[in-house]
Amino acid sequence: MEIWMAFLVGGLTAVGVYLMLRPHLIQFLIGFLVLGNAANLLIFTAGRLGSSFPPLVQPSGTVLEPIANPLPQALILTAIVIGFALAAFGIVLFFRAQAVLHTLNAEAMPETLEAAPAPSPVDEVREERT
């Protein structure tokens, strides 16, 4: 079972990374969602897999063997909620970027709005002349 999960996580990671490397921001966002799912499945697998064991402890404190580990599911639930919030924010952010910058291509976004020349002696000479 775990080996198949490993292949699934690996495949999802490959898809996610590929999409996140694309210049288009929507592809990037979908890549993030896929990669997030890969991470969640990874945690799920790392918490040991069992098919249908109850995560129950008797009042006396003895554990009903075999027992499932409930903690990874709690972690994944938290991670899914956070991922959902991040994705929702990302969609709005990219929507605004499209409205203001008129592009969703990350490569069309320069590092700075105005290229600032580095101060050098040549610049100063030129300035003094003008």
Partner: peptide, 16 residues
């Protein structure tokens, strides 16, 4: 986003 996912994966594996 990238650093978040890396962190999540690292935590998950350390827990495992």
């Amino acid at each position: 986003l990238l650093s978040s996912i890396l962190f999540l994966v690292a935590v998950g594996l350390l827990y495992g």
